[in-house]
């Protein structure tokens, strides 16, 4: 079964299965779906503490209290559940408009709405910023509104990828809090390793989930002989290419090498991007999300 545009709210429920779990405990008082640093009521045992320090006689650890030679009463403490803010950092620079076998702008809109949907399911706050080159084209304040996913989908449909560079991404990053946040960085990563390095450094120490939108056809142009007038959608510069088998092989090899260089930068930061090639497979995405080191 495949799912195609027009995107509508009906399809978004498919993203309900997406879930994320951070490796570290989060501070915070609001109750949510994530392990908090606070001790309190919960299902996951944390430690024991003297009753005096933690006066919760309902969770008296009887065994420990009885066996204690000094007769200290101990209570069991559990990790409190807390919520977090899911921030969708969308890189909507003009390069996203280039399309071969993937409608990457469509993928980005769908992903943004899907994550908003999943965040609502997971009782997390959801915020978004669409960064187009030098300016932030749209900013969605953190909220738990029920219709956020649909709203986001509609808003983004009215916008277009444009602009060049990473200035807006850096600017949006600077405004993000450093605690209780998960940044989902959705981009085509048509960047130099240095630019990626810059973005990832700016995002530290926040947990980041990079989602890499790839277009296989752009990465591996067909070897058919012909003339191509390639235009960079960001700079508008044009260059004629003489396409042939060797040329195609060279382009593909260069694209592979560029991806390898970017992956190396990701692993330097302890990250492994979730790569989406051409289309989204939700189950696959959920699995990858589970594995992702957050």
């Amino acid at each position: 079964m495949s799912f195609d545009a027009p995107l509508d709210a009906a399809g978004l429920h498919l993203f309900d299965v997406l879930a994320w779990r951070l490796a570290r405990a989060l501070p915070g008082l609001r109750s949510g779906g994530h392990l908090g640093r606070m001790r309190g009521a919960g299902e996951i045992f944390a430690d024991v503490a003297p009753l005096l320090a933690h006066p919760d006689p309902r969770r008296l650890d009887l065994r420990r209290s009885i066996s204690d030679p000094f007769g200290t009463l101990s209570t069991r403490r559990f990790q409190a559940r807390t919520d977090l803010r899911l921030h969708l950092l969308l890189d909507g620079s003009a390069s996203l408009a280039a399309s071969g076998s993937a409608d990457r702008w469509g993928l980005m809109r769908l992903l943004a709405a899907g994550f908003a949907q999943a965040a609502r399911r997971g009782q997390d706050l959801c915020a978004a910023s669409l960064c187009c080159g030098a300016g932030i084209a749209h900013q969605e304040p953190p909220s738990r509104r029920p219709g956020l996913a649909q709203e986001l989908l509609a808003t983004l449909s009215g916008l277009h990828p444009q602009g060049r560079g990473i200035d807006a991404l850096l600017a949006a990053t600077a405004e993000l809090p450093t605690e209780r946040i998960l940044v989902v960085l959705v981009s085509d990563f048509e960047l130099t390793p240095a630019e990626l390095q810059q973005i990832l450094t700016a995002l530290r120490p926040r947990p980041v989930l990079p989602i890499w939108l790839r277009d296989r056809a752009l990465e591996q142009p067909a070897p058919r002989f012909g003339l191509i007038d390639a235009q960079d959608p960001e700079t508008g510069r044009r260059r004629t290419q003489l396409a042939a088998r060797r040329w195609a092989a060279r382009q593909a090899a260069a694209a592979t090498a560029a991806r390898a260089a970017l992956r190396a930068v990701f692993s330097e930061h302890g990250l492994r991007p979730v790569e989406i090639a051409d289309s989204i497979e939700v189950a696959e995405l959920a699995a990858r999300l589970d594995e992702a080191p957050l």
């Binding site: 079964m1 071969g100 277009d215």
Partner: peptide, 18 residues
């Protein structure tokens, strides 16, 4: 006569379900 696009515009569906 020889002009061609970089990549044929054969856009795959956004979502694929198994």
């Amino acid at each position: 006569a020889l002009e061609r696009p970089w990549a044929e515009a054969r856009v795959k569906p956004l979502l694929v379900l198994p």
